[in-house]
Computed example of a mutant assay.
Amino acid sequence: MTLDPQPLAGTHIRLLAGQAASGRAVHEVLPARAVGADLFEVAGSPGMVLGCAAGDVLRVTDDGQFEVVERGENLCVQAAGLGQLSLESFAELREAVSHLGGMTEAPPDLRFIVVTVARTVGIPAIEQVMDAWAAGIDEVEWWFGNGDHADASA
């Protein structure tokens, strides 16, 4: 799995995640490595932005819109619940994903969870882990955050 690209040297990119109810743009800031004038290799999978994962090379505009120029070796899985997720459920998912060679991250308030797993693991194996985890939690949903593959949603 390629989760550890070249040292970041403090580079971050700001990607458009959508719009708030007020109509204001919502952005997510991600670690990245510059690989060209407007090209960046994403170093961490996003928790709100759809369409990319760690390892992808993006062309990013000033307003945060982006185009995937080159797909990396990872899939991004995002999960959230209507209520707050627990530390116990996060630990269970982290353990299960580690058996796939993946990485699980979340902000301190656990309002969402991000999983990064190598594409080579295969969608069925990822779906099995995510479905088993979600089955034990009320009102939690998960989805593939980079939709570059067919039939990959929960």
Rank of each mutant, 00 (worst) to 15 (best):
L58Q: 03
G122P: 01
P108G: 15
M48L: 13
D131S: 08
H99K: 14
T104Y: 11
G81M: 02
I126H: 03
A106V: 05
R119D: 07
A80T: 09
G72F: 00
P107C: 11
R111E: 01
P46W: 05
D109H: 11
E73V: 02
P46R: 11
P108T: 08
G122I: 06
T61S: 15
C52S: 05
E67V: 13
V60G: 03
H99A: 15
D109A: 10
F40H: 06
A91Q: 10
T120D: 09
Q128H: 07
V77N: 03
S98K: 14
D62E: 14
P107M: 09
P124R: 15
C76W: 04
T116N: 10
E41W: 10
G51H: 04
V77H: 06
E127G: 03
T61M: 08
E92C: 06
A118T: 02
R59N: 13
G81L: 03
A53P: 02
R59W: 05
V42C: 01
P46N: 13
A118R: 03
T116E: 13
A53Y: 01
H99G: 15
E88C: 00
T61D: 14
C76A: 11
D131H: 07
S89L: 05
V69E: 05
L85T: 02
A54T: 10
D63G: 15
L50T: 12
A53G: 01
T116A: 12
M48V: 04
E41C: 00
L50P: 05
N74I: 08
E70L: 05
L50K: 01
Q128R: 10
E95L: 11
F90H: 11
V49E: 06
N74D: 08
A106N: 10
M103V: 12
E95G: 11
G44L: 07
A96H: 09
F40N: 01
V97E: 06
P124F: 15
D56H: 06
D109I: 11
V49D: 12
V69A: 05
V77I: 14
G51I: 01
D56G: 14
Q84W: 01
G44H: 08
L93I: 03
G44C: 03
A79P: 15
S89V: 03
A79G: 12
E95H: 14
F40M: 02
E67Y: 07
L50R: 01
R59H: 12
D63I: 13
A80M: 15
A96Q: 12
E92Y: 14
D62K: 14
G55H: 00
F90S: 09
G102V: 04
G101F: 04
E105I: 09
G44F: 09
V117M: 10
V42E: 01
E73M: 02
I113L: 10
L82H: 07
F66E: 02
D131M: 08
G102H: 04
Q78M: 13
D56L: 05
E88M: 04
Q78V: 12
I126S: 09
G83P: 00
D63H: 11
E88D: 07
E127N: 10
F112H: 14
L82K: 08
C52D: 00
A54E: 12
A80N: 09
T120Y: 06
M103F: 13
A80H: 10
F90Q: 11
T116Y: 13
I113D: 04
A80D: 09
F66T: 02
Q65L: 13
A118D: 09
L58D: 05
R111N: 02
V68D: 02
L58V: 07
A118G: 09
R71L: 10
E127M: 10
A43L: 02
V60Q: 06
A125V: 06
G101Q: 12
G81C: 09
